[in-house]
Design a protein around this nucleic acid. Sequence first.
DNA 1: TTCATTTGACCCCG
DNA 2: CGGGGTCAAATGAA
Length: 381
Amino acid sequence: MDNMGEWEQNNLISELKQGRELAKQLQIHMNIPSSSHDQTRAMLLQKIISSYEKSLSILNFSSSSASGEPQITGLQIESPPSLNGSPRSEDSDRDAKDQEPKDGSRKRKTFPRWTNRVRINPVTGLEGTLDDGFSWRKYGQKDILGARYPRGYYRCTHRNVQGCLATKQVQRSDEDPQVFEITYRGNHTCAQASKANIFAPSAQPENQEPNNNSTEPQQQQQQQQQQYYQPQLTQQQPEDALWNLRQSLKVLTEDLEVHHQSFPPFNFPSSSNMTTETQVFSPSMAINNNSTFTGNFSPSFLPSAASGTNYNFSASPSGINSSFQNLEQSSDLNELISAATSATNSPTVGLDFPFGNIEYDGSFTFDNSNSGSFPSFPKSN
DNA sequence: TTCATTTGACCCCG
DNA sequence: CGGGGTCAAATGAA
């Protein structure tokens, strides 16, 4: 905790520097007309915004947490240990809990968590967003007291292999069935994160295709969707331009994050998210001008987005919408959701999400609860 | 065959 | 003790 301040400071400084650099680059690019540079400009702009957002969020957190809670940011740092060592598999959770006692505080600390609320618009039909571009594997579903819809539990597909402890919970809002609350815990430490974030081609294990830089996200989403709606798709490339944009956007945020995080663990998605969300929609969108995107770029996963990418470009076929509605009515949505959320790798084919577009509600929340202490071990509860 | 989801049981925390 | 979260066997899909 002591370090937190320092850490935050460093992050803040690096964010600001980053923003400055990006602004300079933007300035340079402003003078260059070609369309190809438009993208670059958009990216830079997005990055700059992200940078500011992060900076602000860092400040906010620090001030807010004053009381003693460490910040999310800080927390994140800690988590890595587990990762580094030997990745534990599922069992680890329990074990971890047991083991924790060392420090003295045996609270089970959880990772920082933040919640995004995503709204799906049946009308528009884009999709998206339930997934953040990461591959998630559903490991449970539970009916929650007082909640009409069950909560789905997801963990990173690479947990066992890479020790990625990121998890998320997806719950549909009672009041507004079109709204889903996605709670993320922990950040991705797996290769996905880097991939997703970076759009550089990286060699990746598993299933990615060489073609797209970051295909994963797309793939994932689709897969899920596929299960329910479609047979598999193979990956395809979405519209290049859009695609690039998104990627770039991601990259940006991620980039930033990466910087600070020298440590593995968490990026603060939230931070980026928070601000980002606003940014994302408006500015970036505008910049892009894609009719396609339209709202969809959803912020949904800004948080994770930072890490992942989502893309849903899809031109969604009309069919989806209808299906979506149906689902909605039935309770199938949940399933869909889960599917959506957990993506594995799916190819992108467009469209796929039954849901339609998702919009960011704009709300997201952080839980600092855990911040009180860091667990040596990251598992969530 | 491999991998993901489903689902009931189990465990821990409050 | 109850609820939330996780495990893991069973099942299904590709």
